[in-house]
């Protein structure tokens, strides 16, 4: 199922939305400046910070 998700270009600051298919494997680039530094904002907002992913406490 496709969902509308938010992205931000970390080079020019352009924020945009794009339809993302489930399990999609796609190279992203900013529609404005073509940079590949694209930050996925939705993940951050709805799933919380993923800093601890795969990390174990010592």
């Amino acid at each position: 199922m496709a969902t509308m998700e938010n992205f931000k270009c970390m080079l020019c600051g352009h924020e945009y939305q794009e339809l993302v298919e489930e399990g999609e494997d796609k190279e992203r680039s900013c529609p404005k400046c073509r940079s590949n530094s694209i930050r996925h904002l939705k993940k951050r907002a709805s799933q919380g910070d993923s800093d601890d992913k795969g990390k174990k406490t010592e």
Partner: peptide, 21 residues
């Protein structure tokens, strides 16, 4: 992506880390 979050959390401008193909 994780580093951008980490930098932001630490008060560092995440834009200073860039990714290009």
């Amino acid at each position: 992506q994780r580093l951008w979050n980490k930098l932001e959390k630490a008060g560092v401008r995440p834009e200073r880390l860039q990714l290009e193909w």
